[in-house]
Each structure stands twice: as structure tokens, then as C-alpha cells.
């Protein structure tokens, strides 16, 4: 493989990671930005999305593409429904106190994870890709589906941005984010907005999972990594900033792939050190530095 094709591979893999991460993290960012809730169960909503995608493809049958499109609709709805329920039954009753909601979402994490284990078992559950296309690039083959994941993520993120900036729902959400009491005084049903935001955040994680599951399979323990990386992305990008989330996701996605793919080839003698684990260590180090020197994140606004 030439240096160029290795770089291309690293770029493509980085974009796939970044796409899925941007979707997942934007859900987390939305929930924190508007509700001020640190949702530790976010990774489990991701996992649920993947498991539901398996369930749909397993029981619907038919051509993989049909089941996949169906899963892309069903998974965010179901996961969003569960999230809205959790918001109404638990978070609302805690008055969204930061400490209490963290503990509550930790509890939710275990309930969802063990629930998935009990209902769907401990095995990795494969989901067929909606289409089977392999591209032969210079020096390596690549899955056409992975390119579709990147495209889908771009479309979904653009839609999210349009919803937030150009619709009435988005206006209401932004109003609630800026000042929930004033929003309430203007007749906005803040409780409903919160339930909707929590559902949307979870739904975004579910969509990301449906996109990734034909590549990775669904597994009840798969939520831990997306949670950690999403937190990194959201902290670096600035909580509540969609633009920051996307930029940080690109940064972390690239670091996560370019370090283990590109550097070992450029510096073969030190190749063994450039592992994905090192990439994670560096990403976490960046998080720590951002927290120390720019706690509002790269694109976040400092709150009084």
C-alpha cells in the first residue's frame, strides 16, 4: 500500500467514526444544552437503537434494505419513547437537579443494559447491511456502505440544524435553553419541551447506532465507548453547541483513526506505540486540557 492510499483509508475510517460520533454526541449535547442534564445513560440509548435494529431485521425478514429502512424509523421512535418516559417518570420528579439526575441516569444505564441482556441475550447480534457494495480503491477494498453512513450522517445533522434554527419547535427549544422561567412565562410548556428534547437526544443516538450496526453488530455492552467518546466530544466542542460538537467529533474521529493507521506506517520503528488506545489517551488528555484552560469548550458560550 502506498502512503497515499493508507492516508485515504485513514481519512475514510476517520470520517465514518466522526459521523457516527457527531450524531451520538449531538444528542448528548442537545440534552445538556437545553435541559442541563448530564445523561450518563446516553450510551445505552445508542445500544438500544442497535438492538432494536437487530430485532426489526430479524423479525421482519424480507430484503435487508426494507428491514433497515424500517429500523431507521422504528428504532429512534421506540428509544425516544423510552427516553420521554424516563424523563417524565424520573428526571422531572427530581426537578432536574444536576446531582440527582446524574445518579438517576446511572441507574437508568444499568436498567437499560441489563434489560437488553435479559430480553435479547448476551450474544453479538448481526444485522445485514441494506446493500452489499464493495469498492476496490487503490491498494485496498472498502465497504460502499461505510460511505453511505457518512452521507446519511451529514443529511441528518443538516436536518437537525435546520430544525433547531428554522422551525417553531427549534425556536421553542432555544427559548427554553436560554431561560426556562421566561419561556414558561411566555406560555411554553417547558415539561413537554424537556420530554421532547430528551427523546430527541436519545433518538439521535439510536439513529447513529442503526447506521453503525451493519458494520459492528448489536451487543448489550456496546454503549460504553460511544458514551465516553461523546462526553469527550461534547466537552471539547462546548456543551450545547451543535457546531462545536461536529468539529470536535471530526477531531476525535480523525485522531482515533489516523494515529493507529497512518503513524505506524510513517514511523514503522515506533509502530507498536501508535495504537487506538494511545489515540484514546490523547483524546482524553485534550478533554482534560480543555476543562482546565477553556472550560466552556472551543465553541461554547460561558454561562454566568
Amino acid at each position: 500500500m502506498s502512503l497515499g492510499s493508507i492516508f485515504l483509508l485513514a481519512l475514510l475510517e476517520g470520517l465514518v467514526s466522526a459521523s457516527v460520533l457527531a450524531l451520538t454526541a449531538s444528542g448528548l449535547s442537545l440534552v445538556f444544552g437545553i435541559m442541563r442534564v448530564v445523561n450518563v445513560a446516553h450510551g445505552e440509548f445508542f445500544m438500544l437503537g442497535a438492538v432494536i435494529a437487530w430485532f426489526v431485521s430479524h423479525w421482519v425478514g424480507g430484503p435487508p434494505a426494507v428491514a433497515f429502512v424500517l429500523a431507521l424509523g422504528v428504532a429512534p421512535l421506540v428509544v425516544g419513547g423510552i427516553a420521554a418516559l424516563a424523563d417524565t417518570l424520573v428526571l422531572k420528579r427530581l426537578n432536574y437537579e444536576p446531582e440527582a439526575t446524574i445518579v438517576a441516569t446511572i441507574g437508568l444505564l444499568y436498567i437499560l443494559q441489563q434489560g437488553a441482556l435479559s430480553l435479547f441475550g448476551p450474544n453479538a447480534l448481526p444485522v445485514p447491511a441494506p446493500f452489499d457494495l464493495r469498492l476496490q480503491l487503490i491498494g485496498f477494498g472498502y465497504s460502499g456502505y461505510k460511505l453511505a453512513v457518512i452521507a446519511a450522517a451529514v443529511v441528518i445533522l443538516l436536518s437537525l440544524w435546520l430544525i433547531l434554527t428554522h422551525t417553531r419547535i427549534g425556536l421553542v427549544m432555544r427559548a427554553t435553553q436560554i431561560d426556562r422561567n421566561t419561556a414558561r412565562a411566555f406560555g411554553i410548556n417547558v415539561d413537554r419541551v424537556y420530554a421532547m428534547v430528551f427523546a430527541m437526544g436519545a433518538g439521535l443516538a439510536a439513529i447513529a447506532a442503526v447506521l453503525i450496526v451493519p458494520i459492528q453488530q448489536a451487543h448489550y455492552l456496546m454503549g460504553a465507548d460511544p458514551l465516553l467518546l461523546s462526553f469527550s466530544v461534547v466537552i471539547i466542542g462546548g456543551l450545547g453547541s451543535l457546531r462545536g460538537t461536529v468539529v470536535a467529533a471530526l477531531l476525535i474521529g480523525m485522531v482515533d483513526q489516523v494515529i493507529p493507521i497512518f503513524l505506524p506506517v510513517v514511523l514503522p520503528d515506533y509502530g507498536a506505540y501508535f495504537t487506538p488506545t494511545l489515540a484514546k489517551i490523547l483524546a482524553t488528555l485534550v478533554v482534560a486540557l480543555v476543562l482546565v484552560f477553556r472550560p466552556q469548550g472551543l465553541f461554547g458560550k460561558r454561562h454566568a
Binding site: 493508507i6 483509508l9 475510517e13 465507548d225 483513526q257 493507529p260 505506524p264 507498536a272 488506545t277
Partner: peptide, 15 residues
């Protein structure tokens, strides 16, 4: 060497 909890492998193959 690949961690047993790894979920994405393409990045190891160029080596």
C-alpha cells in the same frame, strides 16, 4: 495486537 474489546478493525490492517 488488538484489544479483545475492540469493535473496529480496519485501522489495524494497513500495518
Amino acid at each position: 495486537a488488538i484489544p479483545p474489546t475492540e469493535t473496529s478493525f480496519t485501522r489495524y490492517f494497513p500495518q
